[in-house]
């Protein structure tokens, strides 16, 4: 079980993600944009972040950049979850420090598969 942050300005998307992750036994923290996400990760330590790219107030790339500056989140997996599929955007995400890139739409199985994979990578043996 992990504590996972989902950051998206769309209610319905956050609902789908939260529902899927909770079914798999994870704890879910929600944030509505990048700046809200940065507040939430300071309130509690999270094990994984799923972050949208285009959001009002603060977008996902900027949030990842800020998150990576915090020592406790230097190695936490961060997956971008977005409708953006261009290589330029992906490169931006990669340079900001994202762990991976998921292009919407996604299936519940696909989401859980990638979540388990990146959590397994970082959890202590």
């Amino acid at each position: 079980m992990a504590r996972i942050l989902t950051v998206d300005d769309s209610n319905s998307l956050r609902r789908m993600v939260a529902f899927t992750l909770k079914q798999a036994g994870h704890e879910v923290v929600q944030a509505v944009d990048g700046s809200d996400g940065l507040v939430k990760i300071r309130e509690q330590k999270i094990d994984l972040a799923l972050v949208d790219v285009n959001m009002p107030s603060m977008g996902g790339i900027e949030m990842v950049t800020e998150m990576r500056k915090l020592p406790e989140y230097a190695k936490t997996p961060i997956l971008m979850l977005t409708t953006e599929s261009s290589d330029e955007k992906k490169q931006e995400g990669r340079q900001a420090g994202a762990t991976g890139w998921i292009v919407k739409p996604f299936s519940p199985e696909q989401l859980l598969g990638i979540v388990e994979k990146v959590l397994g990578r970082t959890s202590p043996a």
Partner: peptide
């Protein structure tokens, strides 16, 4: 067409 996009790990 399955309703899902791509996943890429960096």
């Amino acid at each position: 067409a399955p309703v899902q996009g791509n996943v890429e790990l960096f």
